[in-house]
Computed example of a mutant assay.
Amino acid sequence: MNNDNKKSAIQKMLGDFAPKLVEYTDNVLFGDVWEGKELSPRDRSLITVAALVAGEHNGQLKYHLGRAKDNGLTETELVGVITHLAFYTGWPRAMTAIMIAKEMFESTE
């Protein structure tokens, strides 16, 4: 097997450029944090999507919406989360997030 096939997506994108950030991403964030037993992957995804919408971190939202679906959240639930957040984080943030979600969900159909 080719060594590139064993690399994570972040290693392929940034491994040579920011190796320490890649190491933290793979080992700490997606290793220790995401694999913790305190919360289910579904709950972690729900929290992560909400935090990304609230913080207007739109660059990471598409990836985490896909991960949320992989972790058991439905498109209907994710639309509901974003709609709910409109009243707590601001309408513009929710509208931006819902457009990202719409585009992402339509591209995976």
Rank of each mutant, 00 (worst) to 15 (best):
H64C: 04
A97V: 10
E77S: 07
N71I: 14
L46M: 14
M13I: 14
N58W: 14
T96H: 11
E77D: 04
G31Q: 11
H57M: 14
L21C: 07
E56R: 10
K20L: 07
V49S: 02
V49P: 01
D70L: 12
S8Q: 14
D16I: 04
L61C: 07
L39Y: 15
A9R: 05
A101W: 07
L65N: 08
W34E: 05
D26L: 06
E56T: 08
G66Q: 14
Y63R: 10
V49N: 02
A68F: 03
L14S: 05
N58D: 14
S40Q: 02
P41Y: 02
N71L: 09
M13C: 06
M99H: 13
N3W: 06
A68V: 06
R44D: 01
T74V: 03
G36C: 13
H64S: 03
L29F: 12
P41W: 02
Y63S: 13
L21E: 03
E75D: 11
V28L: 15
N5E: 11
H57R: 11
L61R: 03
N3M: 10
E35V: 11
A101S: 11
A86C: 13
H84G: 05
L29R: 08
F30H: 04
D70Q: 15
M99I: 15
G55R: 09
P92W: 11
L52H: 01
V28C: 14
V49Y: 07
F87R: 04
A9W: 07
G15I: 02
M99W: 14
H64V: 11
I47D: 00
W91H: 14
N27Q: 14
P92A: 12
W34R: 03
T48I: 05
G36M: 13
M99K: 15
K20W: 03
Y63M: 13
K69Y: 11
V81P: 07
V28E: 08
G72N: 07
I10T: 04
L29S: 08
V22T: 10
V22I: 05
K7A: 03
Q60R: 03
Y63A: 12
Q11D: 02
N71T: 01
M95A: 15
L85Y: 00
A94C: 06
H57W: 10
A9F: 06
L78H: 05
Y63T: 15
I98H: 11
E38L: 13
I47L: 11
L14N: 02
L65S: 02
T83A: 11
T48Q: 00
A50M: 13
K6R: 12
P19E: 01
L65G: 00
W34Q: 03
T76L: 10
L39G: 01
E56H: 05
Y63D: 03
F30N: 02
K69G: 04
K12E: 00
V28A: 09
M99Q: 15
